[in-house]
Amino acid sequence: MRSTPSPAQQPEPGTVHWDPAQYLRFADERTRPLHDLLARVPALPHEPAPTVLDIGCGPGNSTAVLRRRWPGGRLTGIDSSPEMLATARAEGEPTADYLLADARGYDPADARPDLVVSNATLQWVDGHLDLLPRWAAALKPGAVLAFQVPGNFDAPSHTLLAGLRRSPRWRDLLGGDATRAGVHRPETYLDALAGAHCTPDVWETTYLTLLAGPDPVLEWVKGTALRPVLGRLAAPEDRAAFLAEYGALLREAYPAGPHGTVFPFRRIFAVAVRY
């Protein structure tokens, strides 16, 4: 699994360059929804040694959670970022296999998995609703597809970013497509999974995360939503100016309180059992 991927598996040009260290600054907060997701996963067909795919494994923090849940499982992490996979292999979950591949082109059918997990990845994938029937078709009866995605695209952290990148100062550099994809309503995922020969369990939760330190919301989004934007700002002075302007907007939208900064974060969850 660690060999060089075929051309069909290579990430497409313009792939976001991820910063594992920045992403992992809030590792506990980012991993908590995965624990809540896995709590609803039933027994798998080949317990205690199932075949598990972690699609969008990032720096391996999610793969490490899966290893703790299934110590004897055959785990494979799939991600399109070489930087993230390097961290996953070295620090995240070194005993897993890893594959450099884009979620849109990867076909899990050959693995015949007992569980396909995608933790906060599908929001980056345009047309990801079309992937769900293909992923579900790879499952044997009783096997499970489980994913969670952020549902906060209407929150100030995202709407302020969208408005700023379209402002006169930044629109020529950033255009209207500096962020990608998005998510659907929970009902849409429920219908898609039910139509893919699965019994779906779909729900949503809003986490009230208490963040510490100066500009904590800015530091959070630097690891996720800001990555495509910063990738288009090649000049250091442009990057610094944009971060200063966006940071000021975030401080107003998310004022610091006596115990830290409250950052509400809605997430959508789905667990689907193939029948």
Rank of each mutant, 00 (worst) to 15 (best):
M1F: 13
S3N: 13
T4G: 11
T4A: 15
P5S: 07
P7L: 10
P7R: 04
Q9W: 10
Q9K: 09
Q9L: 15
P11F: 01
P13L: 08
P13T: 14
P13N: 01
T15L: 13
D19M: 03
Q22I: 15
Y23A: 08
L24A: 10
F26D: 07
R30P: 11
P33M: 02
H35W: 07
L37P: 12
L38F: 08
L38S: 06
A39T: 14
V41M: 03
P42H: 03
H46S: 12
V52Y: 10
L53D: 08
G56R: 00
G56Y: 00
T63D: 04
A64N: 09
R67I: 13
R69M: 10
G72W: 08
R74Y: 07
T76C: 07
G77Y: 03
G77W: 03
G77F: 01
G77M: 01
S80R: 08
S81F: 01
E83G: 14
M84D: 05
A90R: 11
E91Y: 11
G92T: 07
E93W: 01
P94F: 02
P94D: 12
T95E: 12
L100F: 06
A103Y: 04
A103T: 03
A109C: 05
R112S: 12
R112V: 14
P113Y: 02
P113L: 11
L115E: 02
A120P: 00
T121Y: 00
Q123F: 02
W124L: 01
W124Q: 00
W124Y: 04
V125A: 04
D126P: 14
G127F: 03
H128F: 05
H128I: 11
D130E: 12
L131Q: 10
P133V: 14
A138W: 05
A138D: 04
K140I: 05
V144K: 05
L145M: 09
A146D: 06
F147E: 04
Q148D: 14
V149R: 00
D154M: 04
P156M: 00
S157V: 15
H158M: 10
H158S: 07
T159M: 04
L161G: 09
L161Y: 02
L161W: 03
W170L: 01
D172A: 07
D172C: 06
L174D: 00
G176I: 02
D177H: 14
A178Y: 00
V183M: 04
H184C: 14
E187M: 06
A194D: 13
G195Q: 10
C198R: 01
T199M: 00
V202T: 09
T206M: 02
L208Y: 14
T209V: 15
T209N: 06
L210C: 15
L211H: 11
A212S: 15
P214G: 07
W220I: 05
V221G: 09
G223V: 08
A225E: 09
L226D: 05
L226R: 02
R227L: 15
P228R: 13
L230V: 14
G231F: 03
L233K: 03
A234N: 08
P236Y: 01
D238L: 01
R239C: 12
F242H: 07
F242Y: 06
L243K: 01
E245I: 13
Y246C: 11
G247F: 03
A248S: 12
A248W: 05
L249W: 01
Y254Q: 08
P258G: 11
H259T: 15
H259Y: 15
G260Q: 09
T261A: 05
F263T: 12
P264V: 12
P264D: 09
R267D: 08
F269S: 06
V271G: 06
V271F: 03
V271N: 07
R274L: 13
Y275K: 13
